[in-house]
Simulated assay, not measured.
Amino acid sequence: PKGGLSDQKTQLAVPRLNQEAVAAGTADIDAVSGATYTSEGYRKSLQSALDKMKQASSGAPASSGAAQARTVTGKAVRTQYGPVQVRITVSGGKITK
């Protein structure tokens, strides 16, 4: 979202959502109060990125270096205030960024 209060809420919400995603390692994270639409879009995009990562690693042989860091972008999710898209880095099967 762009403009005024929406920008402020997004700037506060995204770092918290990032921290929760890394800590939880899943898309099962709490919404940030006051940023409900952003939080919901974030969760959906995060789940999309995790699904892509799982699909990519399920076909890889064990010796292919699957423990190396890989970055995946989730689908852009439309919200009432604009699109939300998450990019994650996974290393050793865990979200690191």
Rank of each mutant, 00 (worst) to 15 (best):
I29F: 05
V14R: 12
S48Q: 03
Q55I: 00
Y42H: 09
L12D: 12
G34Y: 14
S45E: 00
Q47C: 00
S45R: 01
L5G: 00
L12E: 15
Y42A: 12
A27D: 15
A35K: 09
L46R: 02
A49Q: 05
E20F: 13
A62V: 04
L50I: 05
S57H: 11
N18Q: 15
T38N: 10
Q8T: 10
S48D: 05
V14P: 04
A67M: 10
S64T: 10
S63Q: 11
A67G: 09
Q11F: 10
Y42S: 11
A21F: 07
G41V: 12
S45W: 07
D51T: 13
E40R: 13
G59Y: 08
G65R: 06
S58A: 15
M53C: 03
Q11T: 07
P15A: 11
L12T: 11
A27I: 02
A23N: 06
L46S: 05
A13R: 07
S39N: 04
S57G: 01
A35G: 10
K54D: 14
S33E: 10
S63D: 14
S6M: 03
S58L: 09
R43G: 06
P61M: 07
A24S: 13
A23S: 06
P61V: 05
V32L: 03
A24L: 00
T26M: 01
D28E: 14
Q11D: 12
S6D: 03
D30V: 01
I29R: 06
P61I: 05
G25N: 03
G25T: 02
Q11V: 03
A31T: 03
V32D: 00
L12N: 14
G65Y: 07
S45D: 02
G25V: 02
S33F: 02
V14S: 09
A27C: 06
